[in-house]
Write a protein that binds this DNA or RNA. Structure first.
Lengths: 231, 231
DNA sequence: ATTGACATCGCACAAATGTTCGTGTACTAT
DNA sequence: ATAGTACACGAACATTTGTGCGATGTCAAT
C-alpha cells in the first residue's frame, strides 16, 4: 500500500476538515483543496483509500465519508496530523487525540530514549482533549507494569500520558531514568542546586525522596495525565 | 426555551445518527425518522434548535449540522441518549461519552444518594469510549477533594468515573457510604459472610481494611475509571 | 511499436438536499 | 370577533453533490 502524494494530501485534508467541522467534506471540496479539477479523480483516489481501508464510504450519500482512525494511527497519519510536526494541516478542535502506547514502564526496566516519531507502538488510545492541558504534539503513553510507582499513586495497569521533553519545571511529575540506579521512575521533580530531588506523590513518610546529581537523571517526559481503567 | 416533542425527537435522532454514522443526517432523513412529511417543517424546527444554540448549522451545506454537546449535556440530553434509559435511540460507536461531574467526594462528606438523572452538575467531562469498559448509561464522575483516598491511590483533584449501582461484585472498586462512620470512601469491595470488607488499593500495611456489617454499607457506584490531569 | 495498467481530465446526468413561499390550523391576547 | 404568533403542510425551485463514461497522458513490460 503506497499512498501517492495526492492521496496523502486528501487524507490530511479530510482529517483537518473533520477536525474543524463535524461533518466530512464533499468530493468537490476535497478537489478544490488538493488541487484536483475533476471530481472523478477525487472519487478515484477516494476509492483507493477505501480499498486500503483508511476511510469508509457510504455510496450515494453526500459527505458519506468516515475515517478509520485506528488504521490511520497505525501508519502514523493521525499522530502526524495531531501535532504541528508534519508541517501542514493542524487538527482543530477535534476534541480527541490518538496517542501511541509506546511500551511498558516497570521498575528497573529502562524505557530507553523516547522516540520522536512513533515506531510501531503496540496499541493506541484515544483521549479527550480536556484530559491534557498541553498541545497535543509529542504525546505518548506508557502502561505501568508492577507496583513500583505506587509511591506516585500510579498502579499496575495504569496508563500514564506523557509529553516528550528533556527538561521540566520544578513540581512537574516526570518519568526519569536514573543512571546508576538503572531504573525509570515516576516522581515529582525538584531542583536542588546541582542535584535533582525526585519526590514521591505519596506523603507517607515511608516513601522517601530520591536525590541524585542532575547529570545522572535523564528526563523522558512530563506526565500530563494518568488514567486507570478498572475491570 | 421549551422544546416541543418534535424538537426533542429531532435532537435525539441527530445524536443517535451521529453516533452511528460520523456525519450528520439530512433534513429529509430527519423528517422520515421523526415522522415529518415536509422538509420545511424539519427546517423550521432545526432553525429553532439553532436559535436555542443546541445545534449549529452551516447554510446551504448538505448535512451542515453540528451538535453543541456542552449545551446538550447541560439540559441532560446527551446523558439521556448515551444510555439505553430513554427508551429508543442507542448511541453507537460514537467513541466518546459526556459524563456529568456530580460533585466532590471527600473524607466524611457524604455525597448523598447518587441521582439517577443528572441534576445540575457543576461540570461535564468527555471521555473516550475505551476508557470505560461498561455500557455508558448511568455513568457519572466525582472530583476527589483531599487526600483521604490516597490508600486507593486516588489523589486530590483526581476524577473518578463511576457507574451508578447499588451492588457490586467482589473485587470491584466502589464508592461506598459507611453508616456509623459517616463517611464515603473508595475501596475494593469483598464480602465476608454478613460483613463487607473494604480493602485499600495500597498494599502498604499501614492502610488497613475496613470491615463492617453489610447493612451499614451503602454502595453508591462502581469505579470504572480514574483520571488524573496534571498541570 | 504495442499493449495494458494507472492516473487524470472534462463533462454530462441524475439524485440528493437545502431553500422559499403560499396556505392552513390552533391557540392566545386584545 | 380580530389580530397575532407559533407551528405545520406541500409543492416548486435551485444547488449541491455523487456517479458514469469517453478521451488523454505516462510508464513499464513485451
Amino acid at each position: 500500500m503506497n499512498l501517492s502524494e495526492r492521496q496523502q494530501k486528501i487524507l490530511r485534508f479530510i482529517i483537518s476538515f473533520m477536525g474543524a467541522h463535524e461533518y466530512p467534506p464533499t468530493i468537490r471540496e476535497i478537489g478544490e483543496e488538493v488541487g484536483i479539477s475533476s471530481t472523478s479523480v477525487v472519487n478515484y483516489n477516494l476509492a483507493k483509500l477505501e480499498e486500503y481501508e483508511l476511510i469508509a464510504r457510504d455510496r450515494e450519500v453526500s459527505r458519506g465519508l468516515s475515517l478509520n482512525r485506528p488504521r490511520l494511527a497505525e501508519i502514523g497519519f493521525l499522530a502526524a496530523t495531531n501535532g504541528s510536526a508534519n508541517g501542514g494541516a493542524r487538527s482543530a478542535a477535534a476534541g480527541r487525540f490518538t496517542v501511541p502506547v509506546l511500551g511498558r514502564i516497570a521498575a528497573g526496566e529502562p524505557i530507553g530514549a523516547i522516540p520522536r516519531e512513533a515506531h510501531d507502538p503496540e496499541e493506541w488510545i484515544e483521549i479527550a482533549e480536556g484530559l491534557v492541558n498541553v498541545p497535543s504534539d509529542r504525546l505518548f503513553a506508557l502502561r505501568v507494569k508492577g507496583n513500583s510507582m505506587i509511591d506516585a499513586s500510579v498502579l499496575d495497569g495504569d496508563i500514564v500520558i506523557l509529553r516528550q521533553q528533556d527538561t521540566a519545571n520544578d513540581g512537574d511529575m516526570v518519568a526519569a531514568w536514573i543512571e546508576g540506579d538503572e531504573e525509570t521512575t515516576l516522581k515529582y521533580l525538584y531542583r536542588d542546586g546541582a542535584d535533582v530531588r525526585l519526590m514521591p506523590a505519596n506523603p507517607n513518610p515511608e516513601y522517601k525522596p530520591i536525590v541524585r546529581p542532575a547529570e545522572r537523571v535523564r528526563i523522558n517526559g512530563k506526565v500530563v495525565s494518568v488514567i486507570r481503567v478498572l475491570h
